[in-house]
Design a protein around this nucleic acid. Structure first.
Lengths: 165, 165
DNA sequence: CCTATCCCGACCGCGCTGGTAGGATTAGCG
DNA sequence: CGCTAATCCTACCAGCGCGGTCGGGATAGG
């Protein structure tokens, strides 16, 4: 499993916020009901999004949350990073918090030569980060709008058997 | 964490086998010593590789393991798939074992509309699978050979501040 | 003041990961 | 014919992180 439900729920939450528009705050209760998610758990998740300045909150009665920016300005790398902490593909990767979600392998040398898996995990990580960065919240909201359930709606470069049953 | 140590150890194991050449079998003990890994645990890992027909074994004294094919014919998607089971980015993705490691989301509909995160996770998964498929064992072995420790040796498209301290 | 909401910290069961233990089987070698 | 080096197999176990709950505090509208 790459990601935990934190990422899943968090993204669902953002989508729900995006659907509602940014004029009025939406209560967590409403989102929890709509998406059928545990409210108490959502509270902890939305806290992560707030710390990352992806959502803003209004306290008190009729309060709630709203997106801090337009959905087209929210890319998924920020979101997933905020929710999951870091995106290390492997345990030995250690966060250097330079600017983006890059992390580095801490095995510089066991037994003289460096660890060869570094190349592999780095490639994977860069790939994932790039994929996430290229997907915006707006896309997901839009996707959910159309959604006549269809596989291969993603980036599915599979020129294969075109004839279904 | 994307991957567990099974993937890490398994890949290291294959690299070690690749370095030794395919003429004589290499004992797990030797690999465990060279890579400083727990032997008993390696046994369970190599069993996965054997089931996937990535390595072959010779029993008895002076036995051991060797690669089932040349390192340039072993791509990492096969390897990681064999070691980790499936590559589902999210829990709701369920293995359909069609031909490659693709898996599908099982939430076809909650509350009418389909789940919007599907687009995101599918993209990530396809990306990872592609990255893995494009990396061969031979590359990793070769990479370890050169290895003057260097970040940005992977696919690092970051034209940024060129001047370090 | 009451209530809806955000906020925060403590707690907890469960499953999986990483690792161990112990033994059975197989094959080269003296 | 045993000894020993190796693969093989199954059961076991501790620790930890995930997913989730609980209780209560702060805050603001009616």
């Amino acid at each position: 499993m790459f990601f935990t439900t934190k990422a899943e729920y968090g993204v669902r939450l953002l989508i729900e916020l995006g659907r509602q528009g940014q004029d009025h705050p939406v209560s967590l209760k409403a989102i929890a009901d709509a998406e059928n998610l545990p409210l108490a758990y959502l509270e902890r998740i939305v806290a992560l999004l707030k710390r990352a300045e992806l959502v803003e909150s209004t306290r008190g009665a009729h309060g709630g949350y709203r997106l801090a920016r337009g959905p087209q300005d929210i890319s998924m790398d920020e979101v997933v990073l905020a929710l999951e902490g870091s995106l290390a593909p492997m345990e030995c990767f250690v966060d250097d918090r330079s600017d983006d979600g890059r992390v580095l392998c801490s095995h510089h040398d066991d037994s003289g030569r460096g660890c060869a898996t570094k190349l592999l995990w780095t490639r994977v990580q860069v790939g994932v980060l790039k994929t996430l960065a290229q997907t915006t919240l707006a896309e997901l909201i839009d996707f959910q709008g159309r959604q006549v359930p269809r596989v291969d709606d993603a980036a599915a470069p599979r020129p294969r058997a075109p004839a279904p049953a």
